[in-house]
Amino acid sequence: MSWVANVMISVGMDDVGNVEALSQWLRTEAPRRAQPEVRGVGFLKPITDVESNPWGGWKHPECEVWAGALNHADLEGLRQRVFETPWREPNQVQLLVMDQEEGFFRLWMIRGDELRQFAPLEPNEEDESFYVGSIGFGR
């Protein structure tokens, strides 16, 4: 049985080496959530690589985005690893995680000396304050 977490990370162009190292860590060393002694949960692939998977539009992306579907990943361990990575441009790092049975991505960003979540813990479509600043759709 699997437990899938969809993961994307967006970084500045100078941090490709760090994302490659993160992907290798996920492949070979990352602990599993219920079995920390078992290592390896998957890997990330670049989705902004213009030659192999071009984005829409007429211009090239100005960031590097990598994505993967991880199996049984210890997501707290992943967040810790992202935070501890010596990023060249830490303020450009955006980690998006959608764990199994969740219907939305959670966004994590490095700000100062912490990795902060910049999304609601649980979106509540019944709460009108959730839509402050939203556009259209009768809200």
Rank of each mutant, 00 (worst) to 15 (best):
M8S: 13
M8I: 04
M8F: 08
I9S: 03
I9F: 01
S10D: 11
V11L: 07
V11D: 07
G12Q: 04
M13W: 06
M13Q: 14
D14V: 09
D15S: 05
D15N: 12
V19R: 02
E20C: 14
A21Q: 14
L22A: 05
S23C: 03
Q24Y: 13
L26P: 01
L26I: 10
R27F: 02
T28R: 11
E29W: 04
E29M: 09
P31E: 09
R32D: 09
R32P: 04
R33L: 09
A34T: 11
P36W: 07
P36S: 13
P36Q: 10
E37H: 15
E37C: 12
E37G: 08
V38I: 15
V38W: 15
V38P: 05
R39I: 06
G40R: 00
G40A: 03
V41T: 07
F43C: 09
L44W: 04
T48L: 07
T48G: 02
D49K: 12
E51V: 10
E51Y: 12
N53T: 12
N53A: 14
W55S: 13
G56H: 08
G57K: 08
W58Q: 12
C63H: 11
V65C: 09
W66Y: 14
G68M: 02
A69I: 00
L70S: 01
L70Y: 03
N71E: 12
N71L: 12
H72T: 02
A73I: 08
A73T: 07
A73L: 07
E76G: 04
E76L: 10
L78A: 02
Q80S: 10
R81A: 09
F83I: 06
F83T: 11
F83Y: 14
R88A: 12
R88P: 02
E89T: 12
E89Q: 13
P90G: 09
N91H: 14
Q94L: 08
L96E: 08
L96M: 13
V97W: 01
V97G: 01
D99C: 10
D99A: 15
